[in-house]
């Protein structure tokens, strides 16, 4: 066995397929993106090499920063609202047990298995100012003064779309917490009960600390998907009004494919990858220092 793994040919054969996939599916496209990012290519016809011009312009582009800020807002609300809620519901689900546990588990997960096109269009209709459910319900409850132009008002549109995205992602967050809770060892809880711990103490001294790896994975995932957000925005507001609800992936798509500024779009995508990498590094560091 030892000599088998020392054979260079065998090592090469084992490593090569994975390495080749990584090179062609990840490194090569990123390299190509960097190259196109340094050109003024429109996507059609000839291109000129213009060096770092695009990258400089992206960093001075107000919309780039608005998009980043919006992604940060989405990540923030997901982490402080959606995740605690998902955790609480996962705990409650675990407590309920029996048939209702299965039932509610399915109900919570339904939004995640419906196509994003369907849920996005459904929300566009719910938010509609003329016939939308939300404004109608507010009217019925005598709360007419709360009626809003949910997707038309630049001041609230971001919150409206954040709510949609949190709703769409809630099932996943809940499922991961639920799976984590199901995997916790029963004996620790038994010991806590014998020691006379109340349920509040059990939650904060046992469940949450034991769930830390799950929370970490879930939070990193939530932050990264906030940065990558594209489909829901494209289908609801397309970043509008103006760029009030713009996100990076949607913006780079508009630049590359509507404005025919393919080079510029690539420059955004390269900076986008860098932002994602930095975020993951930072998050890993945050969670690492808290490990014990």
């Amino acid at each position: 066995m030892h000599s088998f793994l020392q054979n260079r040919k065998i090592i090469f054969m084992l490593v090569f397929p994975g390495f080749a996939i990584f090179v062609f599916a990840v490194l090569f496209p990123i390299g190509l993106s960097i190259y196109y990012g340094m050109t003024d290519w429109s996507g059609i016809g000839s291109l000129n090499f213009i060096g770092q011009e695009n990258f400089k312009n992206v960093l001075q582009d107000g919309v780039f920063w608005i998009s980043l800020k919006n992604a940060a807002a989405l990540a923030f609300f997901t982490v402080i609202l959606q995740h605690p809620l998902a955790l609480i519901f996962a705990l409650l689900l675990d407590r309920v047990g029996g048939k209702s546990e299965k039932f509610f588990r399915t109900v919570f997960f339904i939004p995640c298995i419906i196509s994003i096109i369907v849920t996005s269009k459904m929300w566009v209709n719910i938010y509609n100012s003329q016939y939308g459910l939300l404004n109608k319900v507010l009217e019925l409850l005598n709360l007419g003064f709360l009626k809003q132009q949910w997707l038309g008002d630049p001041d609230i549109v971001l919150f409206s779309v954040i709510l949609i995205m949190m709703w769409q992602g809630f099932g996943w967050a809940l499922l991961i917490y639920y799976a984590g809770i199901k995997g916790l060892p029963e004996d620790v809880y038994e010991a806590a009960r014998i020691d006379g711990a109340n349920s509040f103490q059990t939650l904060f001294k046992i469940t949450v600390p034991l769930l830390k790896p799950v929370i970490m994975v879930n939070v990193i995932w939530a932050v990264i998907s906030s940065l990558k957000q594209m489909e829901t925005i494209y289908l609801t507001t397309n970043g509008g009004p103006g760029n009030a609800s713009q996100f990076l992936a949607n913006y780079l798509y508009i630049k590359a494919f509507n404005s025919y500024e393919y080079g510029y779009g690539n420059a955004i995508s390269v900076l986008f990858v860098i932002v994602c990498l930095i975020t993951v590094l930072l998050l890993n560091r945050v969670f690492k220092t808290e490990e014990y």
Binding site: G152, D153, G240, P241, G242, N243, I254, E261
Partner: peptide, 21 residues
């Protein structure tokens, strides 16, 4: 004009109509 002008002019008119400008 150019495709880029199309995107820009459409964005600013939307901002204007939404009261952002």
């Amino acid at each position: 004009a150019t495709p880029g002008f199309k995107t820009d002019s459409q964005t600013i008119i939307q901002e204007f109509a939404a009261g952002m400008k």
